[in-house]
Write a protein that binds this DNA or RNA. Structure first.
Lengths: 146, 146
DNA sequence: GAAATTAAAGACTGTTTTATCCTTTATTTT
DNA sequence: AAAATAAAGGATAAAACAGTCTTTAATTTC
């Protein structure tokens, strides 16, 4: 469903949220340790997100990634689109180039429905909410205990 | 969502269904022309499906691919699983190795819901139904008119 | 039986995704 | 100013995915 990059990206951003409530910055190493993701690969994703202004970053000692005031209400949908683009939400389920209401593929309506449910879910969820689930212990971002 | 191989495979099987109601066999070339898919690549997919007994085939003149009596009630789910495996239906939305009810990722429940809807859709749809939509002109498998 | 036809099988190429490493740049601390 | 730190950026490598081509095997037609 989501690409690896997107999975790491989502986990990373939720992690940053869950740890840096009061302006504390987190380094890539910390983050990747916390979410059990490959360091340099995840760094690239975060850099891309920073470029797109979905997260903030500063270099130098005590620098790292953090979430600014303006980024506080980020939705999951924005994150997914920033990393994976909109291919998950646009385009035909069977790969037809010109699938439309008028010339639908055989699963057009059902697929559309699934997709809209997914888009709805992603657009409703804020990172803040998700982070809260982690800090409260209800959810986790890494393999624990087993 | 689905891989290219899966898209071509689904289209191919629906096409076979829609054209070979009375035991007529269709060659790969015909099929690929009919669904606007790359020939050799799609051939591989059909061969794999034949090996897995989801479609039937015979070699030689007037040979080709067809659907046997036993394959008549094939569900879309079986097709997708045969080509893409179950990765779409199993595994965590955020890629966690040990995500479970007990140790869920932050989107566990919602993702599970989406996934179950998808699985339900795919397990309910028969290829026969989908083919009927094509033969009746309600749906299409290729780019038309534009 | 020989020729023609068609799927099956395997080798090969190209692209995208995933991942790692190394260098550069910006920032802070001393 | 120098040293240390951390993100940014570039280069490379491995794996998965997508697609093509060639040869082989089975079947039918003649």
């Amino acid at each position: 469903m989501f690409s690896k990059a997107c999975e790491y990206g989502i986990r990373a951003v939720i992690y940053i949220w869950s740890k840096s409530t009061h302006g504390v910055k987190l380094g890539v190493k910390d983050i990747c340790k916390g979410i059990d993701a490959p360091e340099f690969f995840t760094a690239k994703i975060l850099q891309s997100l920073a470029k797109q202004d979905l997260v903030s970053s500063t270099k130098g000692p005590n620098g790292g990634f953090y979430i600014s005031k303006e980024q506080e209400n980020m939705r999951l949908l924005a994150l997914v689109e920033a990393i994976d683009g909109d291919k998950l939400f646009r385009g035909c389920g069977l790969g037809l180039k010109h699938c439309s209401e008028k010339h639908p593929c055989p699963i057009h309506d059902d697929y559309k429905n699934i997709r809209e449910n997914l888009a709805k879910l992603l657009s409703e969820k804020t990172i803040k909410e998700l982070a809260k689930e982690v800090t409260s212990g209800k959810a986790t971002l890494t393999t624990i205990g087993v």
